[in-house]
Design a protein around this nucleic acid. Structure first.
Lengths: 122, 122
DNA sequence: TTTTCCCGTTTACAGCTGTAATCGTTCTGA
DNA sequence: TCAGAACGATTACAGCTGTAAACGGGAAAA
């Protein structure tokens, strides 16, 4: 948990959050579908993540097994907080209000948020 | 509305969203407090924003007047959507749930969101 | 044993960012 | 009229990103 994780690196993290530990080749497989990256690219991203300490690797014979070193929840929480801080003065309500106004909320969403909020109140 | 606005550039946008049109010098003044940028830096950021078409400039004598070319609301909406897409599978509810779980919501927030949701339902 | 393959590591390279300094031109005050 | 001042434009430069290719060493296959 050192420097920020870039967009491409996030793809790698998602693969490792889905399943870990994985070898570089397995990560490449788990990710290639959508992005079409060469295995080299995946390896580069993995080592960058290792130096950023977002990913840990332990030797397994002559190869490495990679595992996330940051919980997805923590990452997601941090990023959400960043957004809220940067754009909504640190307040969550305006974010929700904003999404609501932009019709980004379906009726089901509204229903569900209401249930959620109701749960929080008790 | 072309390429993405970077973090530093966002500071400039915020100044222009607060008040516009402004000269480069005025932007620098309106922003310098927190960041401690040299006026040159502000000018560089302004021209980058102009080439990204996030800012418009019209000649006023031998200087330019700069104005935002993107509404803050649109920008904020786009960024929020990006976050929701990248980290919450495009669903808003998990975001709210997440913030709630992380205790990022005060009682007042909850109260207010509830009011907001209630408003949406009717 | 020799060739081939697989790994991780190193190097590459262009585009974006942060942060300016410098340049050329034009207005302005002396 | 002539030297600054003020502007925008051009150039700088290191660090981060996206996207690999090349390299070197060991393991596996022939």
């Amino acid at each position: 948990m050192d420097k920020r994780i870039s967009e491409a690196e996030l793809e790698i993290m998602e693969a490792l959050w889905r399943r870990a530990p994985l070898t570089a080749a397995e990560v490449a497989e788990s990710v290639d579908e959508d992005r079409g990256w060469s295995p080299q690219t995946v390896k580069t991203l993995l080592s960058r993540l290792v130096s950023k300490q977002a990913v840990a690797h332990q030797k397994d014979g002559r190869r490495f097994l990679y595992s996330p070193n940051v919980a997805r929840d923590d990452y997601v929480g941090g990023e959400s907080q960043r957004l809220v801080d940067r754009l909504f003065g640190g307040k969550v309500t305006p974010l929700v209000a904003h999404l609501a106004e932009r019709d980004a909320l379906s009726d089901d969403d509204i229903e569900e948020i209401e249930r959620l909020i109701r749960g929080l109140k008790s």
